[in-house]
Design a protein around this nucleic acid. Structure first.
Lengths: 178, 178
DNA sequence: TCAAAAAGTTTCCTATAGGAAACTTTTTTG
DNA sequence: CAAAAAAGTTTCCTATAGGAAACTTTTTGA
């Protein structure tokens, strides 16, 4: 539906998009006017060719599964502190349940990086907001230091690791969209 | 690809899923074995019938647009305070740019609800975390009061409005996935 | 152990996704 | 304004999405 708008916004003609997406000009014309329904493979090619997410071309695809009530109320400190092997403790503020788009966590980065430098890496995007203290975010090629109130939004596929620096133990709110 | 696993997990047979999704049993069998590619309309019906997100059936569809660098570093108070008509001030911590899955905001709910009770409502999901003060989250049918450190994850299609209660002005971190 | 029933697969058919190219409309340019 | 080029549409064709039903395999149960 929004295909035409997205193509226009990208400044492309049907012929240009046709080449990029490896689809015929005529077929694209039909798609734009709702005269055909693409297969998911074609929709994906369009999304890549226009460098937009699928949901922007077909908003209905972006909706969460229906019937799944995603509401979760979480009182402070009401969830247990988990300490997995990589050193950073965390609290899940809402379970990573199927059908939920985001997973919010409270993260407590360790002061010292363990001997096993396992970088955290996963699909999707991550929003990192420092609540207290100072956090060093180590990426493969750079390190970013954030103080309370600072935030970083980044592609979670970039391997990363967190460290609490300074005397006060740090606390951060992390939201992952996978 | 994961269709078979998802169907099994839901405890459904091909015939049962066939009825729910209004697709033939034989065609479903082909889909599960990769012998056919569904149109987006069919993929959506499957997603609804199984009550899972599309990305769980076809992970490649869930990926963000490639080539879009979504990284944004935001220092504390480095972004302007916006005061739109509905009364709640906010700061955008990362622009709602195309291709980004989440939009993080700092929200400053008003102490008094304006005369025009415009409820906030939009597609997607919202994660609400109270940083300071106390916030009353008004929904059509209920009001939830959150203190510092409390959080609520909910379906953003439920109309809602925020209010700062108590003497200290409240501040909340909100992340929207649209 | 052997029906009988349920689950899954295959075959064959129709409707539609998608391509090639002619055609029409709009824009550019002299 | 006219000619040419570019953008978009339509026509017609082939490949495949998707349905109906027969067929095969697995499970159930006496």
């Amino acid at each position: 539906m929004n295909l035409k708008q997205q193509r226009r916004q990208a400044g492309l003609t049907l012929a240009q998009l046709s080449e990029r997406a490896a689809l015929s000009k005529g077929y694209l014309s039909k798609l734009e006017r709702g005269l055909a329904t693409p297969t998911i493979a074609v929709a994906l090619r369009l999304s890549r060719a226009l460098a937009v997410s699928l949901a922007e071309l077909y908003p209905e695809l972006g909706e969460a599964a229906p019937g799944t009530d995603c509401t979760t109320l979480q009182r402070r400190d009401a969830t247990p502190l988990l300490l997995p092997q990589n050193g950073a403790g965390y609290r899940a503020l809402a379970g990573a349940q199927a059908g939920r788009r985001m997973q919010p966590l409270l993260v407590y980065p360790p002061a010292e990086l363990g001997a096993a430098p396992t970088l955290h890496q996963h699909a999707g995007e991550e929003f990192f907001y420092v609540l207290h203290g100072t956090v060093a975010l180590h990426f493969a090629d750079e390190t970013i230091t954030l103080g309370a109130g600072d935030s970083l939004y980044f592609d979670a596929r970039r391997a990363h690791r967190t460290q609490s620096v300074g005397d006060e133990p740090a606390e951060a709110l992390v939201v992952i969209a996978g």
